[in-house]
């Protein structure tokens, strides 16, 4: 299945979404990411039982903080799918890219660029 997905996406591989930390997500935005999404296994199918459920809560916490700092929590999202859903993975990548493109660039990155210029 040589599926294509947008090359603007950088994949960070983790052993389990349970490794996702609020700090990781915030750092990504601080370094200029326009959006972040976390792709975990289906709920109930975590090899470590609760990894993806923990990730879900951390994504929610990251959203809360991003709303406070003015970046907008909707730039982070979590998806759950099984390893057999390659096409869906590609579709999510497309959808997320469209969504973020519509929202425009990360405002903090813009300010930083202006400062540098």
């Amino acid at each position: 299945m040589r599926l294509r997905y947008p090359d603007t996406i950088r994949i960070v591989r983790l052993p389990c979404t349970g490794k996702v930390d609020v700090g990781y997500i915030l750092r990504a935005f601080e370094k200029g990411a326009d959006g972040v999404y976390v792709v975990g296994c289906m709920e109930g199918d975590c090899r470590y039982n609760r990894g993806n459920l923990r990730a879900k809560k951390r994504v929610a916490e990251a959203r809360r903080i991003l709303n406070i700092v003015g970046i907008g929590g909707e730039r982070v999202q979590m998806f759950n799918l099984s390893s057999a859903e390659g096409p869906k993975f590609a579709q999510i990548a497309l959808d997320m890219t469209e969504k973020i493109k519509a929202m425009g660039p990360n405002p903090v990155k813009l300010k930083k660029m202006k400062k540098a210029a």
């Binding site: 700090g23 915030l26 903080i65 700092v69 003015g70 405002p107 300010k111």
Partner: peptide, 16 residues
Amino acid sequence: KEVGVLASALRMYFMN
């Protein structure tokens, strides 16, 4: 961890 999250959030807030 909490220091990291807070610092990151504050940097982004003020930059914004």
